[in-house]
Write a protein that binds this DNA or RNA. Structure first.
Length: 441
DNA sequence: CTAGCCTTGACG
DNA sequence: CGTCAAGGCTAG
């Protein structure tokens, strides 16, 4: 501390020391002819090297580089010593010659290493940032429900609409009763539920089908499109799923980040979602993340070949088993996909409705307005029922409804299974957005 | 590694 | 709304 005159603590100078000199200097510098010099930038000098400084960093006025240098080095115990006498002069030119003396000078002028955020604080900070990001994404969109469709993200429109359906079944709206070439039997059965698998098994009598009201019809369609263009579309990163890009659960989680973004996009399109308070929006979103991923995986599941459909073709599900090593969980996951996909086929409206019902879960973690959530959920349950009646006839709708709701209930169990796995993951290796959204703090 | 530039949350 | 002071990112 050769000269204590130039270094003051932030508190000291901020309150009682106007220190007008800086202004004078600023003006003197540019003179009367000052071109709108940005601010009255006073020329502070770095206490370490004399370079230009913007303000305090870790309790001393320093330049950006010494700030970064200090942040990088102050906490690690060094074995490196000065090659000379330990009193090297440090200026903007020589500052990088001797890290030891530079760091020593940092401490000498009063920089405090305890102002560097530790792992815990840093993590907390990142979480806050991530949370705000989500909040912003969800909130910011005064735009109306459906005038942002232009684009979602071009891959969605490029890949999503057309070829997604190609392999197993081509169909999407309306009578999704398309047909999996499967089947020798007219009915598929699981868990005591019998539903016809082939459209030819459905009643031919028109009056056996519900006529959706106009509102219902548009809502169903919108939901289908919303799902298709967001969660239900494939994205390039699923190409990353190819080879053995998935070595660990971590990779799996991090690669799922795109899917989370899609989920946000999806809910942003729902006007009902906006009826929720901001907290409940976040809560219900978080609560639905894992389920979304599962639903999504089911929609890309190809029953006939036990594989996933990706932008790069099909990938056998065994690669996931290998990646995670959680065989048991994996098996139940696949079993789930099989069952769900068999019922829902490639009907985006169905997947969309299912997702909505999962999202508006009055029983979800941390939700405040259970009532509202429940009301909205009911609305979509009814819509789902009606939709099923319009597609599968009154005769079979009930079976489908039971089957689907049952599957949605199972979703919880499987999600929880995955959640347990997630708890074993090292938070430091996970992207902040996923950390936040999965509650892995 | 460095160092410059950028994004953020807290604070007044 | 502007300033301050953290961390992050990334050419070089």
């Amino acid at each position: 501390m050769a000269d204590d005159s130039d270094v003051e603590t932030p508190s000291e100078c901020s309150m009682d020391n106007p220190n007008g000199s800086s202004y004078e200097l600023a003006y003197q510098d540019d003179g009367p002819s000052c071109r709108k010099r940005m601010k009255l930038k006073d020329d502070k000098l770095c206490g370490v090297c004399g370079d230009k400084a913007l303000g305090y960093n870790f309790n001393a006025i320093t330049c950006e580089s010494c700030k970064a240098f200090f942040r990088r080095n102050a906490l690690k115990d060094k074995k490196v010593k000065c090659l000379f006498q330990g009193d090297c002069a440090i200026d903007v030119r020589t500052r990088r010659f001797c890290p030891y003396c530079r760091l020593k000078k940092c401490f000498d002028i009063g920089m405090k290493s305890d102002m560097i955020l530790d792992d815990k604080e840093r993590k907390a900070r990142m979480e806050k940032v991530a949370e705000n990001r989500i909040k912003r994404q969800v909130t910011q969109q005064h735009t109306i429900v459906k005038d942002e469709p232009i684009d979602p993200d071009f891959e969605a429109s490029a890949v999503g609409s057309s070829n997604i359906y190609s392999p197993p079944t081509p169909s999407m709206e309306g009578p999704s009763s398309s047909d999996i070439p499967c089947s020798k039997s007219e009915y598929i059965t699981f868990d005591k539920i019998n539903v016809p698998v082939d459209s030819s098994d459905l009643p031919s009598d028109e009056t056996m089908y519900r006529q959706l009201s106009e509102n219902e019809q548009t809502l169903v369609t919108e939901v289908g499109i919303a799902y298709q263009t967001t969660v239900g579309s494939m994205h390039n990163s699923s190409a990353a799923l190819q080879e053995d890009n998935y070595h660990s659960v971590n990779d799996l989680i991090n690669h799922s980040e795109v899917a989370v973004r899609r989920l946000i996009k999806f809910v942003k399109r729902l006007e009902d979602f906006r009826r929720l308070s901001q907290e409940d929006q976040i809560s219900s979103l978080k609560g639905a993340v894992l389920s979304t991923l599962l639903l999504r995986s089911a929609s890309f599941y190809i029953v006939e070949r036990d594989s996933w459909l990706t932008t790069k073709g099909e990938v056998s599900t065994v690669i996931l088993k290998k990646a995670t090593g959680f065989v048991e969980l994996h098996d139940s996951h696949i079993k789930y996909c099989r069952a769900l996909k068999t019922i829902m086929k490639n009907d985006f409206s169905l997947f969309g409705l299912a997702l909505i019902i999962v999202i508006f879960n009055p029983d979800g973690p941390n939700v405040k307005d259970h009532q509202l959530l429940s009301d909205i959920q009911d609305k979509y349950l009814v819509l789902l029922k009606h939709y099923l009646e319009s597609v599968f006839s009154f005769t079979y709708a009930k079976e489908y409804l039971v089957a689907i709701t049952q599957k949605l209930n199972e979703l919880k169990g499987i999600s929880d299974g995955h959640a347990k796995v997630l708890l074993q993951v090292n938070p430091l290796e996970i992207e902040p957005l996923m950390l936040e959204v999965l509650n892995l703090k």
